[in-house]
Simulated scan of single mutants.
Amino acid sequence: MSTNTIILLLGTNLGNKFNNLESAKNHIKNEIGEIKKESNLLENKAEGFTTENLFLNQKIEIISQLSPFEVLKKVKDIEIMMGRMYSQPLENELYVDRLIDIDILYFNSIIIDSNRLKIPHPQNYSRSFIKSLYFY
Rank of each mutant, 00 (worst) to 15 (best):
E31G: 06
E31T: 13
I32A: 00
I35D: 01
I35M: 06
K36V: 15
K37M: 13
K37T: 09
E38T: 12
S39V: 02
S39F: 05
N40T: 07
N40R: 03
N40C: 08
N40A: 06
L41A: 09
L41C: 07
L41W: 09
L41H: 12
L42C: 03
L42H: 06
L42P: 10
E43M: 10
E43S: 15
E43G: 01
K45E: 15
K45F: 11
K45S: 12
K45G: 08
A46W: 03
E47Q: 05
F49S: 01
F49E: 07
T50Q: 09
T50E: 13
T51S: 15
E52S: 12
N53M: 05
L54M: 04
F55W: 12
F55A: 03
F55H: 12
L56C: 13
L56M: 10
L56K: 11
N57T: 09
N57C: 07
N57E: 09
N57Y: 08
Q58T: 10
K59E: 13
I60P: 01
E61A: 15
E61K: 14
I62P: 00
I62H: 02
I62G: 02
I62A: 07
I63P: 04
I63E: 15
I63D: 04
S64F: 03
Q65T: 10
Q65V: 15
Q65Y: 15
Q65E: 15
L66W: 01
L66G: 00
L66C: 05
S67W: 10
S67L: 14
P68V: 05
P68S: 12
P68L: 00
P68T: 05
F69H: 05
F69K: 07
E70L: 02
V71D: 02
V71F: 01
V71P: 00
V71Q: 10
L72P: 04
L72I: 10
L72Q: 06
L72R: 03
K73T: 11
K74A: 11
K74E: 12
K74D: 03
K74G: 00
K74M: 08
V75K: 00
K76L: 14
D77F: 06
I78N: 05
I78K: 01
I78F: 07
I78V: 09
E79Q: 07
I80M: 11
I80F: 10
I80Y: 13
M81Y: 11
M81S: 13
M81C: 13
M81N: 14
M81E: 14
